[in-house]
């Protein structure tokens, strides 16, 4: 009999990611390549589809139950997923920005904007699927609405443009708003699953 392995946080995260990567390797690889394109717009598209392809896709396709039968909690699944996404976005942003001829401030801004968008996007997709909506269509409408509302008028007379996760008029306010959306997605997902 083999010595028992203690399923700690890192070990379980690794196991969860093995499942996700093995199940969705093709999709994840394509979006991963897109993440390395330096422009912010292309990156947002990659983040959008990556967010939608992981746990939200399992929930939408009712394949998440297989995960709940195993020793995973919803809290862990959410955090592993978000952690993995943030890691991918951060690493790809650092690599692309290191190779791109921009100032340090611009590089930093790009990385933070990417992180903000990831937080908001994952939260939005999780909110949608937790409400029984799909993982692509509704989130896409919400992104469009956010972009539309954020681009109306000048920044001074449109406070939404400061917090909009597509516009990010103010990096700090946009971060707070993105974090709130992300937390809302987490809260609703756990609440619906009886973990809160």
């Amino acid at each position: 009999m083999k010595a028992p392995l203690m399923p700690d946080f890192v070990n379980k995260m690794e196991l969860f990611l093995q499942i996700e990567l093995k199940e969705k390797m093709g999709r994840i690889f394509i979006f991963l390549v897109l993440l390395f394109v330096p422009g912010f717009s292309v990156k947002t598209i990659a983040i959008f589809f990556l967010s939608a392809s992981m746990l939200p896709a399992d929930i939408k396709n009712r394949r998440d139950e297989a995960l709940y039968f195993l020793p995973f909690s919803r809290k862990e699944l959410y955090l592993y997923n978000l952690g993995f996404l943030l890691l991918l976005v951060l690493v790809s942003s650092i690599i692309t920005q290191a190779l791109w001829p921009t100032t340090i401030a611009e590089k930093g801004m790009f990385i933070i904007k990417s992180i903000n968008f990831t937080l908001a996007m994952f939260g939005v997709v999780m909110l949608c699927v937790s409400q029984g909506l799909d993982n692509i269509g509704w989130p896409f409408i919400i992104v469009l609405l956010d972009a539309l509302l954020g681009s109306i008028g000048r920044a001074l007379i449109n406070p939404y443009s400061w917090i909009s996760f597509t516009n990010q008029g103010s990096i700090l306010f946009a971060f707070v708003f993105a974090a709130i959306i992300c937390f809302a997605g987490y809260w609703i997902y756990l609440k619906n699953g009886g973990e809160l």
């Binding site: 083999k2 392995l5 196991l15 499942i19 093995k22 199940e23 390797m25 297989a66 020793p71």
Partner: peptide, 30 residues
């Protein structure tokens, strides 16, 4: 589970590794 749903791309060996990692009292000899 009743529906016997499994991960689509998982081999039996993948399942062995997964369960071994998740269950502290896993009996590999059995």
């Amino acid at each position: 589970p009743e529906d016997r749903k499994v991960f689509r791309n998982f081999t039996a060996a993948d399942y062995q590794r997964l369960w071994q990692g998740l269950y502290p009292a896993w009996n590999d000899a059995f």
